[in-house]
Amino acid sequence: MKVFIPVVSKDKSSKLSEVFGRSEFFAIYDTETKNTEYIDNGSAQGARGVGVSVGQLAINSGVSKVVTRKLGPNAVNALESGNIEVVIQENTDKTLEEIIQAL
């Protein structure tokens, strides 16, 4: 299973982003291979509809789960139509490492 996580930097010690659609980077963690891939968010500065673009990015990346602090209505709809489970993690002090361990 692949998990999609908005992060503030491209390393395991990164904190969770405050935002989803406008997060600068995303980590995609594969629970089987234990590999983490980092991608830039081309939509971070978009005028609007960024939740849909990032939802589409998650769908195209083949992820089954999203861990995020919060997300907007466009992202909710997009992830829903992609059958992607959303886990809300309110604690932004947690590092990517800790989030992965808790999966």
Partner: peptide, 24 residues
């Protein structure tokens, strides 16, 4: 069409027909 839409109004669930978000 999804990649061409600058307003992100079209969304494509994996291997399905794109759906329109009229609001966008």
């Amino acid at each position: 069409c999804v990649r061409s839409c600058n307003s992100s109004a079209l969304l494509q669930p994996l291997n399905e027909v794109p759906v329109l978000n009229k609001n966008l």
